Simulated assay, not measured.
Amino acid sequence: MSTAVIHCKDGDHTLDLMDREVVAERLLSTSRKHSFDPDVDVAWDTPVEPDRFFMPPECVSLFETPLWDGLTRAQRIELSRRELASTMSYGIYAELMLMQALVLHAWRREVDSKDVAYALTEIADECRHSMMFARLIRTLGLRATRPPQWMYQAGKVIGGIYQPVQKFSMVLVVEETTDTLQRAIMADSDLQPLVRQVCKIHVIEESRHIKYAREELKRQVANLSPARRRAYALMISPGAYEISRALIHPSCYSGIGLDPKEAARAAAASPHRRETVAWMFRRTMGFFEEVGLLDGPARKVWQHYGILQP
């Protein structure tokens, strides 16, 4: 264990930095005890119950909007089904990007180290998660959707670039926000049992991935000058905002007979939706505060996007 001091405008932040090998050994030990095979550990024959939501209604993008008020209960349930599938579709593409980042990370380390052994273990986890999400989407009678075209094409380029501060920051943006949603799903006994099973597996295994990304990001930030750290913070925030928008594919709205553009505008203008997004980002924002990634002008940008509440 060592420490690093981050000099921020609101004062000094002291970070505890654990040795990579120590962190990796602990995570490897946990992986041996708490890993799942979705093909075996998910009861895929669990019937989908027609009158149950697929996520908490208050987490659906149109909740508490005039459009929501005009929907029947069946339409609301259908929208929750489609938004869950859309979020998990985006999750698959995010997992693919994460796997690329982990391969690039392992390439730069000692390949016989425990750190690389854990990176490879996490890649195996993410492979299973991607297949599990895809199978759930198909089981729900839907097909996976792609991110927006510009984001999909940009991913082909960005995926091959190793920028660890950005990579591990965006890992936390995706993993912790979706983890927050999935924790709410798995805890709600009124929701679809099959969806809750999938979320439970993902939450248990994802906790290790979040720990790994947090510890690596702390090490990376500790080596940055204040100017570079603030520059990275500014670069991260627009990407996080676009991710929050990309979670809901336009087909979610057209699938229940709504105009996608009108529905997207209603969701964007909804105070409740902004609060929901801020809730999903709350843990990540707390950690970014700790490591100095909200320092300087970045804080105002996060607040402008509604991800960080003033």
Score class of each variant (00 low, 15 high):
residue 4 A to K: 09
residue 5 V to A: 14
residue 7 H to D: 11
residue 8 C to A: 02
residue 10 D to E: 04
residue 10 D to N: 10
residue 10 D to W: 00
residue 14 T to P: 03
residue 16 D to K: 14
residue 16 D to I: 15
residue 25 E to L: 13
residue 29 S to E: 15
residue 33 K to D: 14
residue 42 V to D: 11
residue 45 D to N: 10
residue 46 T to P: 00
residue 46 T to G: 09
residue 54 F to G: 06
residue 55 M to E: 05
residue 55 M to S: 03
residue 58 E to T: 10
residue 58 E to C: 11
residue 62 L to R: 00
residue 63 F to L: 07
residue 71 L to V: 13
residue 75 Q to C: 08
residue 77 I to D: 00
residue 81 R to Q: 07
residue 81 R to N: 01
residue 82 R to L: 01
residue 88 M to L: 13
residue 90 Y to Q: 12
residue 93 Y to R: 15
residue 95 E to G: 04
residue 96 L to W: 08
residue 100 Q to K: 14
residue 103 V to E: 07
residue 104 L to G: 02
residue 105 H to C: 11
residue 105 H to R: 13
residue 106 A to C: 08
residue 107 W to E: 15
residue 115 D to A: 13
residue 117 A to N: 08
residue 119 A to H: 01
residue 125 D to K: 04
residue 126 E to A: 07
residue 135 R to P: 05
residue 140 L to H: 01
residue 142 L to Q: 06
residue 144 A to R: 08
residue 146 R to Y: 11
residue 155 G to A: 09
residue 156 K to Y: 07
residue 161 I to R: 04
residue 166 Q to T: 12
residue 171 V to K: 04
residue 171 V to M: 08
residue 174 V to A: 02
residue 177 T to D: 04
residue 182 Q to P: 10
residue 186 M to S: 13
residue 188 D to M: 09
residue 191 L to N: 05
residue 193 P to G: 11
residue 194 L to Y: 04
residue 205 E to L: 06
residue 209 H to Q: 08
residue 211 K to F: 15
residue 212 Y to C: 06
residue 214 R to K: 03
residue 215 E to L: 10
residue 215 E to A: 07
residue 218 K to T: 10
residue 219 R to E: 09
residue 222 A to S: 13
residue 231 A to N: 05
residue 236 I to A: 05
residue 237 S to H: 09
residue 238 P to I: 10
residue 238 P to L: 13
residue 239 G to R: 11
residue 239 G to M: 12
residue 240 A to M: 09
residue 240 A to S: 11
residue 243 I to C: 09
residue 245 R to I: 06
residue 247 L to F: 13
residue 249 H to A: 13
residue 251 S to F: 10
residue 253 Y to P: 01
residue 255 G to T: 02
residue 258 L to S: 01
residue 259 D to L: 04
residue 266 A to E: 01
residue 267 A to F: 02
residue 270 S to G: 05
residue 280 M to F: 13
residue 285 M to S: 06
residue 285 M to H: 10
residue 286 G to S: 13
residue 288 F to E: 01
residue 301 V to I: 10
residue 310 P to V: 12
